[in-house]
Design a binder for these strands. Structure first.
Lengths: 343, 343
DNA sequence: CTGAAAGCGCTAACAC
DNA sequence: GTGTTAGCGCTTTCAG
């Protein structure tokens, strides 16, 4: 990477202002112990010269840094983009820089990225995105984060349990129960579920909620077709095709995120199947476009941007004795994609 | 921000491995001048101890850093989220950390963020998002970026002219011409344009392309209603209402981005106006959901993720004598939201 | 091939 | 209220 030569140093500013480097330092950082008149003069000189402090030097000397890290599966995904938006917002408010990295849902890459953040001595790390049902898959990350915390770093996660740190937990179980209840309440009995890989806790939780709702109704969830494909729009299309082929009598498709639901809607539309008259469709997350689809999507709203903000706020707070948990609310948003089953 | 105490230092590793700190440094950074056997041993010791280098110290000593900055208007916006995805992808490939910051389209905030990135001594800065038609609004940023470059920093912009640096330019003019030609070719003559603030170059350019198409057809663009509202979904709704009220005979609405087009579709749907039978609607950008709307959206595709990737690649290359320009292609994607005007 | 030592630019004791 | 100075943890000459 390019050499950053020729930049002004604090000494240059100090000399130009006719003060010592210590006074210059205090003036610019707003530390007490300098007369206001001198401080103001130094600041003016610095501004005129276009001085920009070297934050690496500052971090090294002070032992602290004004930056935090955010780990997401994929920033192009609206779910994470909105979370990131919340994180950046409070980051900006607090005067922090935010380093964002991708993992592509690969535990290995995730570990790499976490290490890099640690090496950058970020003051806090927010890890967003589902964890794995199999704890072994994130043992390495857990260990690294633990070491990081022991060295004084702060960690918060979004949507993960089992990591022993402050967590913001979307209400996946209750949300899953709520959508399922909604469909059951409308009278649907032949419901299919479109899901991603069940090794992700997010999915396992949502599914558990759905199962609860069936059980509460006295129905056997084992009879419900659960189609596991990619947790994406494309996956939704595939799931829809498969459901139509294998279970043609289904009257509702419960997709475990909006992305999949969008794919399902798309597949049904291209086959000319009326939603919700013939088949109802529901999603989960309430990404921004859910309301603008046609038919608009019935889904579970999760406050993603707030979740991001909250996670960073947790991470920034002094650590508590035991991990804090903040469960976000969820809200069933009934729109046009769900209705009673055909008579 | 939290104190990062207690972390291992290179000296600890050196001692444990029974070598000098210099040898340890060389071993870990892969520098030549160490026997492979010693180097391997040092690396093994470091791994066992869980040593993570302090990048601030490294940057300070080496005068270089493995990090870059990305400035976007709003990461929650799919347009920028996709650009960011491209940037993060090549960043990861190159082993760089990426700092992302928001500006909210506020030139002041933008300047702040750029300064912070400079202070962080990032090796390169990518600025994404439209600039301003009025150059004065970005003079300060221009000056700062100039100083940054003189100090050895690298800069690339996406979708901005007039900044005197390497640029990735979406083909806004040609794209604008292409959608307009599409509508004109279908036979539409009473077309309205829904646009955001014309002080943004992106918008000015797209509008110029649209005007060209009208001129080529021998039509006077001055007669075309151009409704300027927020460059958002909400703005699109407002624009649609206004167009319906003031120009009820319009047969097509050309929105200058997909977000607005989605808003327009939404407003038309809630009024029961058939698209494209009664009114055609077109967008611009081709965000991921455009294809899944109902009706699916006719729009101009811009390769956003590639634009982000390309921009970072440009920034990483050794600087050229004069600013490089890469104009991205555009592609008219005709879907279901546009058709011939009603007879 | 390896080690000693001089900084990188800044902060924070500690003097005055 | 201001200046002096010893590091922060690492890289990189320069000797050996």
């Amino acid at each position: 990477m390019s050499k950053q030569g020729g930049a002004l140093r604090l000494q240059d500013v100090a000399t130009a202002a006719g003060v010592s480097i210590a006074t210059a330092s205090r003036s610019l950082s707003g530390a007490p112990g300098v007369s206001e008149s001198v401080a103001e003069r130094v600041r003016e000189v610095a501004r005129q010269m276009g001085y920009v402090a070297n934050l690496h030097a500052r971090s090294l000397a002070a032992g602290t840094s004004r930056s935090v890290g955010l780990v997401v599966h994929e920033i192009g995904d609206p779910y994470f983009a909105e979370i990131a938006s919340g994180v950046l917002r409070v980051g900006a408010d607090e005067g922090l820089t935010v380093q964002i990295c991708h993992t592509g849902r690969d535990p290995e890459r995730e570990l790499d990225q976490i290490r890099t953040l640690v090496a950058n001595r970020v003051g806090a790390i927010v890890v967003a995105g589902s964890g794995f049902v199999d704890p072994a898959l994130q043992n390495a990350a857990r260990t690294d984060l633990q070491a990081y915390r022991e060295a004084g770093g702060r960690v918060a996660v979004i949507g993960r349990h089992h990591l022993g740190v402050d967590a913001v937990l979307p209400d996946n179980v209750a949300g899953g129960r709520a959508v399922a209840e909604h469909l059951l309440g409308l009278g649907h009995r032949r419901i299919a579920v479109a899901t991603g890989w069940q090794g992700l806790t997010t999915i396992a939780d949502r599914l558990a909620g759905v199962a609860e709702a069936f059980a509460a109704e006295g129905l056997d969830f084992a009879d419900v077709p659960v189609v596991e494909v990619a947790f994406t729009r494309e996956g939704g299309k595939v799931a829809a095709e498969r459901i139509l082929a294998d279970h043609p009598d289904v009257t509702a498709v419960l997709a475990l995120n909006d992305d999949m639901a969008i794919g399902v809607l798309s597949a049904l539309r291209s086959r000319g199947i009326a939603v919700p008259e013939r088949i109802s469709v529901t999603g989960f997350d309430d990404v921004a476009v859910a309301q603008d689809l046609a038919p608009s999507l019935t889904t579970i709203r999760l406050p993603m941007s707030e979740m991001g903000a909250l996670a960073l706020e947790l991470a920034l707070k002094p650590p508590a004795g035991r991990p804090r948990r903040r469960t976000t609310g969820h809200e069933l948003v009934v729109r046009d994609s769900s209705g009673p089953p055909p008579a």
